[in-house]
């Protein structure tokens, strides 16, 4: 009985893996691909691996470790990728309607320039 429940859990997880693949194909730029990829693979791997653990109880301990590891690390890698993608936002043609991070970067740059100018004036 638990084997059948596990197999169906794996099937739902596999559908989420397929969803992440479709999301990677359909979404228009890297940020939105990340949105689809990260979320769908996280829930997909939770369901798929727990399903395998239910089908074969001697694997359950290891699959639980793997699930915890994936839930903790998958957002971290997508965060690193999002920061990298923000550096290339003009190249990849990402549409970001309000871009608060670019505004903050510009503000910081202007602030550092004005202080540098003041110091230069002081130096003269």
């Amino acid at each position: 009985m638990t084997a059948i429940i596990g197999a169906f859990l794996s099937l739902i997880g596999a559908l989420f893996f397929l969803l992440s693949g479709i999301g990677l194909i359909r979404m228009p730029d890297a940020f939105n691909r990340m949105q689809a990829g990260t979320k769908a693979t996280t829930l997909g791997s939770i369901l798929f691996l727990i399903g395998i653990g239910l089908q074969k109880p001697e694997y359950l301990g290891r699959t639980i470790i793997l699930v915890v590891f994936i839930v903790l690390t998958n957002p971290v890698s997508s965060n690193a990728l999002a920061r990298a993608a923000h550096g290339y936002r003009k190249h990849i043609g990402a549409r970001l309607e309000p871009d608060a991070l670019a505004e903050a970067d510009e503000a910081a740059e202007v602030a550092s320039k004005t202080t540098a100018n003041k110091e230069a004036v002081h130096g003269d």
Partner: peptide
């Protein structure tokens, strides 16, 4: 995500 990916018109309006 499933709703947005499978919707034929891709209802997204991204920003930071």
């Amino acid at each position: 995500v499933a709703f947005r990916v499978l919707h034929p018109k891709l209802p997204i309006d991204p920003g930071i």
